[in-house]
């Protein structure tokens, strides 16, 4: 979040509420669940870290002065580093995998049942993301983010399919051992 807020300030100095509006717009439907105060918390942390400076702008007579935030040279440097960075958001698969292993080893639960429950949960989330995409006007950039969520969930669901096949084979040693393309 901090990096994204910094990068948005790279265009021009901005008020907190202006930044928040831009963030929300970029996030589309996902932005609606953003905590309204989060941007100010983030900005004050960035200020303490010396990455932004906060100036008081001349307000209109009836209004109090509003804070305008701008990047410091250190902030600009950090934005440049962030943009050049190549990362891979780690999917958290190990935990679920270990849950299956532990459940099977201790006869605590049937891994196939755990997989089925996980699958139901992911499908409901997929439905949520899908409905949000369908509710957006076609071609909106903000849906790209939701599209990413959908693809990620699809990948997770496919992985669960692979897990299901392996664990149901290991468990009951099914006669039908055919291989499906995944």
């Amino acid at each position: 979040m901090q990096d994204a807020v910094l990068a948005m300030l790279a265009k021009e100095p901005s008020h907190g509420y202006g930044l928040r509006a831009r963030l929300r717009q970029s996030l589309g439907p996902l932005g609606e669940s953003m905590n309204p105060g989060q941007i100010y918390v983030t900005l004050s942390r960035l200020e303490k870290a010396g990455l932004v400076v906060c100036e008081r702008a001349d307000g209109l007579p009836e209004r109090p002065d509003r804070k305008v935030y701008a990047l410091t040279p250190a902030g600009q440097q950090r934005v440049a580093t962030w943009l050049a960075e190549v990362g891979w958001p780690k999917p958290d698969m190990a935990e679920f995998h270990l849950k299956l292993v532990a459940a099977a080893a201790a006869w605590l639960a049937d891994p196939v049942e755990l997989i089925a429950a996980q699958r139901r949960e992911l499908l409901r989330r997929l439905r949520e993301a899908q409905q949000a995409i369908l509710a957006e006007p076609a071609g909106s950039k903000a849906t790209l983010l939701l599209e990413g969520v959908v693809l990620r969930l699809q990948a997770d669901l496919r992985w669960l399919e692979v897990c299901e096949r392996a664990w149901s084979r290991g468990g009951a040693s099914r006669a039908d051992d055919r291989v499906e393309g995944v």
């Binding site: 996030l27 996902l30 932005g31 669940s33 989330r125 949520e128 993301a129 949000a132 939701l146």
Partner: peptide
Amino acid sequence: TRLAGFHPRGLGGLIGLEG
């Protein structure tokens, strides 16, 4: 599985925007 009729947990939860 019934997929419909669950309370949306907030779309932000899908990408870890909350918190």
